[in-house]
Design a binder for these strands. Structure first.
Lengths: 230, 230
DNA sequence: CGCGATTTGTGCACGTCTTCACAAGCGCCT
DNA sequence: AGGCGCTTGTGAAGACGTGCACAAATCGCG
């Protein structure tokens, strides 16, 4: 499930604050989900909870990390050291959560050789060598959209089977390769949609308007969280 | 729907390449979704497709931008100009897709006054003034997790009703405030999970292992795309 | 003017995810 | 040892999203 990493983060927090065990209710709150959902998720990994007590935090962390394949530190190749790539290269969250940026690559010769956060940028055509040196499991694409597909092909060619794509475009990859996409502008646009929705049903009823603002049922906010109480 | 921005992006691409109209099939391919799904999505906005012809690209762009509330350029306040915030401040995608970064804020006095991409960083406590100068619709949190909740409270206090949170933590906000979360490490962990899954069912069958690697049905990759053919 | 090719819009069925509610199990206290 | 309260794990019901398949509608051409 895609929620396991969130549970893992919450568990690490709990472990740091000295909790030995946690109930499904407590963990669910910390992760921002329903407690029944959490129990069902955890039960799917044949988990070790104790009725009447809860879950052993340390044990559960170990279990989830195993399922996520985080027992080994995975090497990540980051392609594109523009604005975003630069930030990603220095992002602490990667190192602290089981990943190691093994290589920085870029297609721009002017950038090759540049040192960023203690790593030297290499040319993207050196990917085969890089892959030979280290077993690259995951590729991160932080290039402009125009270059993304080509980079993806190159990554696939050297055996990468998981790609995290920050470029605003659809990648086509062969079977067996997983792609996850993160588009920052899209996130904002979704928020903008909600803003627009809220604004139009609060103030002006927009009598003459089309059906666009008052979309028929089922458009309530399902993602994200709304109000958990303070 | 959360897919509308993706359609919009695809439509802009099509418009630039000189297409006047597009069929649901064509647009679906460009956006990486099923054509029936796309038609259903578009029909929910009471849309203007012509049977036998397809959709008018320009009209559809206009419609979707209206629904998303992009007819007005929305002002965004960005809090936290560390690694990530720095990159976000310079990210072209925001400006080019209907957003304007109206203010850069940070809690660290050492950073206040610094100029980033032509903008001066102000102290986060100046939020009320900033909000008074411009109508801030959306707040972006790019701070460490420890500061995120406090920043969220401050944003809510000045009337922000949509928050994009990059900090790895759950925010609690009052009713009516929308929060979307982007956690880069979680994205990688999800990919790691798929890597682990692929590795364990390809190579070693892991006879003695727990049920963890061979999770019972329904864990196929549902998000992202897998293989669209090249 | 009529016919066929093409494409939208949608009813229907299916599978998945979510949530409730409750039985089973565990520990603690008497 | 027995009972009581608490928490997990799960069955069932419902909501939701997805995809197929087809009727309705439009255009172009003869």
């Amino acid at each position: 499930m895609a929620r396991l990493p969130e549970y893992l983060r919450a568990l690490h927090n709990l472990a740091e604050t000295g909790n030995e065990t946690v109930s499904s209710e407590g963990l669910a709150n910390a992760a921002g989900v329903n407690s029944a959902k959490l129990r069902k998720d955890l039960s799917h990994l044949g988990s070790y909870g104790t009725r009447g007590v809860g879950y052993d935090v340390a044990l559960l962390i170990e279990q989830i990390e195993y399922v996520l394949g985080l027992t080994q530190r995975r090497a990540v190749a980051l392609v594109g050291v523009g604005n975003l790539g630069h930030a990603l290269a220095g992002y602490d969250g990667f190192a602290s959560r089981g990943f190691r940026i093994a290589a920085l690559l870029d297609a721009d010769p002017a950038r090759v050789g540049e040192e960023i956060h203690g790593m030297v940028v290499r040319h993207v055509d050196e990917l085969p060598q890089v892959a030979a040196e280290e077993s690259i499991a995951i590729g991160v694409i932080a290039t402009p959209a125009s270059a993304a597909q080509r980079v993806a092909d190159q990554l696939v060619a050297v055996g990468v089977t998981s790609i995290l794509n920050f470029a605003p475009c659809v990648l086509s990859v062969p079977d067996g390769v997983d792609v996850r996409k993160v588009d920052l502008a899209i996130e904002l646009q979704i928020l903008s949609f909600h803003e627009h929705r809220k604004a139009s049903l609060t103030g002006l009823p927009r009598t003459g308007g089309s059906a666009l603002t008052a979309l028929p049922g089922g458009l309530a906010v399902t993602e994200g969280q709304e109000a958990i109480g303070t």
